[in-house]
Design a binder for these strands. Structure first.
Length: 922
RNA sequence: GGGCCUAUAGCUCAGUUGGUUAGAGCGCACGCCUGAUAAGCGUGAGGUCGAUAGUUCAAAUCUAUCUAGGCCCA
């Protein structure tokens, strides 16, 4: 007789091979067709809200692995919060304005650009951004991300644009916005400001000059040794044309400076550069008169070498000893660092250069000259004044215009700023930082330090693709006009027609009729053409999205982005929210690290170590990518490599096979009819349920703490150790050989059903596709949810917890390990192959003997051998459990493969054991 | 150059307030099974805890320096 067919072997059409790249899109279609996300939010409508507010990715290019990581992390949180019983409605967004899009559009236009109006360019920018929003949306959906994809937020939506105007309006009205000067990269050929991204660095020949600034302040009181001779501070620069704008000389506070007597006069310079400089000057005979740290000279005054003006000595930390003299020529209108120290010391941001790069007419000697041509004139004039000590030529890296390739200059221009101090923004922001939960905790220190030290926020840009700074200027008295009425009028216009109207319409039509200048009563106005920094756009997303959509909530429960956003979105959102609402827009901020390669190095095209999400999805599936996200501790940098992905794929298959085994053994189990009440379950099944409760506890807690790698490791361990190699292995005999409806089999199935449904739900936020696939295969009555994502996590059932039982089984597992070792020995000696070939004699100390006695009947199934006999050890000295392995007695039952003396007793089934005969009849 | 952060087996992670021989899973090696079968089971080998110096009776854990790497500034 073919006994195989009389067994209850696993049966399922849940495939072993996942073929995720093909199967996942089918689930996406299913979710979409059945409107699963819509059902989810409807179902959760009345629940407590947990709102993760999406930081908008930039609408340019395809998503990369870092974007995928970020969105998957968000999705795991959103799904796990829904399953934990919250309403976690997720509205994704995109950042659409800004230079990168404008760049791409300009590139594609080429020379045609100059023929187009601002509005035309903006229209093309909008089309370009729309295209990439659509591309990225599909890419995100393919990852299995749930959210309101049909109605995301875009910073270029008319409503959003109006919000930007209103929010910036609040700053305009509260007195924190001012206009000031700031140096920007400026291309004299294009007559335009350039952003950092529009600048390329190339080698350039520049003059290199050493200039002396005669000391005016008397040094004798401080340094008696310096009495008598004229003293000069020596500076070095490669941009002689900025000498006319010199207002200060910067020294490092802690470097040692020297006063050096070279004969008729005394030079001041840094100790570390003395020899180099003296050699350059050809001075062989010199004497150091004084030594002092830079900070002792702070506030001393020198005379400008060309003009009747002072140049003050200031301190700056960026002074280096790499080149020059350690005394840095400072022109606050012509350099970034110069500007910052200039602001700090209250110096004028002096920049007497016009749009064409020519000196303005108030500059003696050089008025009207192009700055680069003026280099030699300046040197000549310095030489005439006796201030030029040395002139050379040097080749160095210098900024050039990306378009014309011409060298560019730093030039101070009028810009708009939000003050950090005028309304106490800095102090309030610092206070608000302490009210937020930062995960990990050092995020707080990081943003705190930045807010503490940052300069005022320069919010203006001289570009086309963005939101205009909606202020007006009175044509007659030049006064700035921005009132509640004008701001709201413009906001309403934007709401209806978009921000393009600002560039499309005449100024008069952007103002309420009859608007008068409050200063002079004038009725003619011009409009500002600068646009806002895009960080302001995304920085008010809470206002445009959270406050505008009633299904959401302000402040957000959570912001979640890469750690670079401490300077980016977390930062700008904090400032706008604190400035207008007095507190942070988020309760918690979670940051993740950056994706790096297997060696921990950053990914770059040039290094050739880039892994694209698309590749992973096509090769292994989105679920493997999601599993990767969950497995790594994202607080640190996150590694990815082919090996890591291979390991993850292996790990995925182990989990998948666990699901498959469970499904295969539940094909004939109807939980509503066949479930065995808990007290009647076999003890080992109750052990399994106890372990399951522990897993549920650990996993739910890990989700709550956003520690997804704990989820991954816990589930992985549970599947591999507690289930597959222990519980399932033991269960097979009962599941396969007992009659299908027997109490023993139903008891096992009762536990397996609980395990399967819990395991499916616990992994659903991570393995969103696979969990759904399992769920669709799971039997269940009317009450079964349409999708696993519509369910909530299993609760811990206290009645399933039994610590005493667990402890007993821990002892059994220890003894089982001893038996396994003995079996392995016997296997090596070729005594047995299958463990069922063996019988085991256990030699036990008294305590163990008494304990195992009560499990005597079950032990053979627990050890998966044909029989177990228990023997107390003879000597009391013996404390160890010993297992002796012998060939099993009796014949092998062809049905259950156990050896038993009953085989052959039944004439109808001469090669089956008594237990199997019963099962066959039963 | 500055701020913040990271470094534990081939891979991913644990490692409480410093306290025996540093753990887990995967992978690997060897073996078993062929009734989860492109599966399953068993046994085993892998680590100077990035390096150095210190504090201590005792350091993966505390301190300093260095090295490698990441993010943000300059």
């Amino acid at each position: 007789m073919d006994y195989r067919s009389t067994l209850n072997l696993p049966k399922t059409d849940f495939p072993m091979r996942a073929n995720l790249s093909k199967r996942e899109p089918e689930f996406l279609k299913m979710w979409e067709a059945r409107g699963i996300y819509g059902k989810l939010i409807r179902q959760a409508k009345e629940r407590t809200k947990y709102i993760l507010h999406d930081g908008p990715p930039y609408a340019n290019g395809n998503i990369h692995i870092g974007t995928a990581l970020n969105k998957i992390l968000k999705d795991i949180i959103v799904k796990s919060k829904f399953m934990a019983g919250f309403n976690s409605h997720y509205v994704p967004g995109w950042d659409c304005h800004g230079l990168p899009v404008e760049h791409e559009v300009e590139k594609s236009l080429g020379k045609k650009k100059t023929e187009l109006s601002t509005v035309d360019i903006r229209k093309r920018c909008r089309d370009y951004a729309t295209k990439f929003v659509n591309i990225q949306r599909e890419e995100f959906k393919r990852l299995g991300i749930f959210g309101e994809w049909e109605n995301p937020y875009l910073t270029m939506n008319f409503g959003y644009q109006a919000t930007i105007v209103r929010e910036f309006g609040k700053f305009l009205l509260n007195g924190s916005v001012y206009k000031g000067k700031k140096p920007v990269h400026w291309c004299p050929t294009c007559k335009t400001a350039l952003a950092e991204a529009e600048v390329k660095y190339e080698d350039h020949r520049s003059p290199s000059i050493y200039v002396k600034f005669r000391m005016i302040s008397k040094l004798e009181n401080e340094f008696p040794a310096l009495k008598g001779k004229p003293i000069s501070v020596i500076i070095w620069t490669t941009t002689p044309w900025t000498i006319p704008a010199n207002l200060a000389i910067a020294l490092h506070p802690d470097f040692t400076y020297l006063a050096v007597d070279i004969g008729k006069e005394v030079y001041i310079l840094a100790e570390g550069l003395l020899e180099t400089v003296m050699e350059k000057f050809g001075v062989g005979n010199y004497k150091v008169l004084e030594k002092f740290p830079g900070k002792r000279l702070e506030g001393f005054k020198t005379r400008h070498p060309l003009y009747e003006r002072e140049s003050i000595i200031i301190l700056a930390p960026y002074v280096t000893l790499d080149a020059g003299t350690g005394c840095v020529h400072t022109a606050p209108g012509h350099g970034q660092e110069d500007y910052e120290t200039g602001v700090q010391y209250g110096l004028e941001i002096y920049s007497p250069v016009d749009d064409d790069g020519r000196f303005t007419k108030d500059v003696p000697f050089f008025a009207g000259q192009f700055v680069f041509d003026a280099n030699s004139a300046v040197s000549k004039k310095l030489a005439e004044a006796g201030a030029l000590l040395k002139e050379e030529v040097m080749v160095h890296s210098y900024p050039h215009c990306w378009r014309t390739n011409d060298p560019i200059i730093f030039r101070a221009t009028e810009q708009w700023f939000i003050s950090m101090e005028k309304t106490g923004l800095r102090g309030n922001a610092l206070k608000s930082i302490n009210e937020v939960t930062w995960i990990p905790p050092w995020g707080r220190d990081r943003i705190y330090g930045m807010i503490e030290n940052r300069p005022d926020w320069c919010v203006s840009r001289q570009r086309a693709w963005g939101i205009p700074i909606t202020v007006f200027y009175c044509s007659s008295c030049k006064q700035t006009l921005a009132t509640q009425e004008t701001i709201e009028y413009v906001a309403k216009l934007f709401e209806k027609r978009g921000a393009d109207v600002w560039f499309d319409e005449e100024t008069a039509r952007l103002l309420p009729e009859g608007t008068r200048c409050p200063g002079c009563g004038g009725s003619e106005f011009t409009k500002e053409t600068d646009i806002l920094d895009v960080w302001f756009d995304s920085g008010v997303s809470y206002a445009a999205v959270l406050e505008n959509r009633p299904e959401l909530q302000f402040p957000a429960s959570l912001y979640l982005e890469g750690s670079d956003q401490h300077r980016g979105w977390f930062h700008s959102s904090l400032l706008t929210s604190v400035g207008t609402r007095g507190h942070a827009p988020y309760c918690s901020v979670l940051t993740h690290g950056f994706v790096v390669d297997g060696e921990g190095k950053k990914m770059s095209k040039s290094a050739g170590n880039v892994i694209a999400p698309e590749e992973v999805i096509n090769k292994l599936g989105a679920d493997v990518l999601r599993l990767w996200v969950s497995a790594e501790d994202y607080k640190d940098d996150i590694k990815i490599s082919d090996e890591i992905l291979k390991r993850l794929a292996d790990s995925y298959f182990r989990i998948r096979n666990t699901y498959r085994f469970l499904l295969g053994n539940l094909y004939d189990f109807d939980p509503e009819k066949d479930r065995i009440p808990y007290p009647d379950l076999y003890e080992i099944d109750r052990w399994a349920l106890h372990r399951l409760q522990k897993l549920i506890f650990r996993v739910r807690e890990a989700y709550e703490r956003f520690e997804f790698h704990i989820v991954y490791h816990s589930v992985q361990n549970f599947c591999a150790v507690e289930m597959s190699s222990t519980y399932f292995d033991i269960l097979k005999d009962r599941l396969y050989t007992f009659s299908s409806h027997s109490r023993g089999r139903r008891s096992a199935q009762t536990a397996l059903y609980e395990i399967l449904s819990a395991l499916t739900q616990l992994m659903a936020p991570i393995l969103s596709f696979t969990a759904e696939e399992v769920w669709q295969h799971l039997s269940g009555g009317e009450g079964k949810a349409e999708s696993v994502h519509l369910t909530v996590f299993p609760e811990i059932k206290n009645e399933y917890l039994d610590e005493g039982l667990n402890e007993r089984w821990e002892r059994i597992w220890e003894i089982r390990a001893v038996v396994m070792k003995a079996l392995e020995e016997a296997r090596k000696e070729k005594k047995i192959g299958l463990s069922l070939d063996a019988q085991v004699h256990l030699h036990l100390p008294e305590k163990e003997y008494q304990f195992l006695k009560s499990y005597e009947k079950e032990l053979k199934s627990i050890f998966i051998v044909s029989s177990v006999t228990l023997r107390p050890v003879e000597s009391r000295e013996e404390k160890e459990v010993k297992a002796e392995v012998l060939r099993a007695d009796g014949e092998k039952c062809e049905r259950c493969w156990n050896y038993d003396v009953s085989v052959g007793k039944d004439p109808e089934h001469p090669i089956a054991c008594g237990r199997c005969v019963e099962a066959l009849q039963g």
